[in-house]
């Protein structure tokens, strides 16, 4: 508070320097000159995006070609929307869309808020030793590969060897067929993701919470706010910015489902609920070397992502929140 008071008069100081009335271009130029060091700061990043993102991105035009390495991007024949038509007219398109969306929405509803809740819970722990111990434990699964997690899941839930089923048998109950039952598949994927990433996800939120001014808590206590209310009125707002950005970005990748996890967990019995765009692209596009076709599918996903992000951003702005851009 104190700091801000002293600073207040300085506001507008930079603009004061270029107060002279000027043409539009002249103002633009003087603004750019004024902020030259900011551009210098941004330059490495901009170069990075141009070289390693934009130059490769131009290659996406092969979605409209029958790409052949021999002719290259410049020489391959154009086929218009043929690959898109093939994709949309595929008998399985609706199944793929349904599964992708189902898995994605489950993740949005259960997986996305999980680390937020965990961060809030951790923030309420008084004993710093206990807090650190729990924190260090829950973030470890992030480092385990999906192959390993597949192995562990098999160890826990398979019918012949699974610990869970062995326990059921010892209680004289029927074993449950979890890994090859279509009804459990989506739930299991969501649970696996939460288990793997919940702790890791807290890092970013705890960093946001770390920025909260302790005075705000003190003030809230004075006002007689209980812990739940303090959580709601002080801690959560501090994380709002981060949550919103992450949420909008997540919506942009609504058609991405995490290829490796699903590919490993998939088996013949659950194909109908497990096949998603990503596994389809892998099988059809990459293994069979159909670059143009798989690029077209990727482009479709991107365009859906653009629509989602733009809409979400508009909504955020309408409700007076900070938006992404």
């Amino acid at each position: 508070m104190k700091v801000q008071d002293t600073v207040q008069p300085a506001k507008g100081a930079p603009t004061a320097r270029s107060a002279k009335p000027k043409s539009k271009w002249g103002r633009l130029w003087s603004d750019v000159v004024r902020d030259k060091y900011l551009y210098v700061l941004a330059l490495p990043g901009i170069l990075f995006f141009i070289i390693f993102k934009y130059i490769p991105i131009t290659n996406l035009v092969i979605a409209f070609q029958e790409y052949s390495p021999y002719f290259g991007v410049l020489g391959s024949p154009w086929v218009g929307f043929e690959h898109f038509a093939r994709f949309f007219s595929n008998n399985d398109f609706w199944m793929l869309l349904r599964n992708t969306l189902a898995i994605s929405f489950l993740s949005l509803i259960f997986f996305f808020p999980a680390p937020i809740i965990l961060s809030l819970m951790l923030n309420e722990v008084r004993s710093s030793l206990y807090k650190r111990t729990i924190q260090s434990l829950v973030y470890i699964p992030h480092f385990l590969s999906w192959v390993l997690i597949y192995g562990l899941t098999y160890l826990m839930f398979s019918q012949s060897e699974g610990l869970f089923n062995k326990w059921l048998v010892s209680m004289n109950w029927e074993t449950i067929d979890i890994l090859s039952n279509p009804n459990y598949f989506w739930g299991m994927l969501t649970a696996q993701s939460i288990w793997k990433e919940i702790g890791w996800g807290t890092i970013i939120f705890l960093a946001a919470i770390a920025g909260v001014d302790p005075q705000l808590y003190e003030a809230a206590v004075m006002d007689g706010a209980g812990r739940l209310r303090r959580m709601w009125h002080v801690t959560l707002p501090a994380m709002r910015n981060v949550i919103l950005i992450l949420l909008i970005l997540r919506l942009g990748t609504i058609l991405d489902t995490g290829f490796e996890q699903i590919y490993l967990m998939m088996n013949a019995a659950v194909t109908n609920v497990a096949e998603v765009f990503d596994t389809y692209v892998y099988r059809v596009g990459i293994r069979q070397g159909e670059f143009s076709y798989s690029t077209a599918i990727g482009l479709f996903k991107s365009i859906v992502g653009v629509i989602m992000v733009v809409t979400a951003n508009k909504l955020a702005r309408r409700y007076g929140e900070d938006s992404l851009y």
């Binding site: 603009t15 633009l28 603004d31 900011l38 991105i57 670059f291 990727g298 653009v306």
Partner: peptide, 27 residues
């Protein structure tokens, strides 16, 4: 920094790379 010119253009330029992922071969 809100005063920066071309700020929004830069943001959108960054965002586009989030949404459009190029293949491995061009990289």
């Amino acid at each position: 920094r809100k005063r920066l010119r071309f700020r929004k253009a830069m943001m959108i330029m960054v965002l586009i790379t989030f949404l459009f992922t190029p293949g491995l071969v061009p990289l």
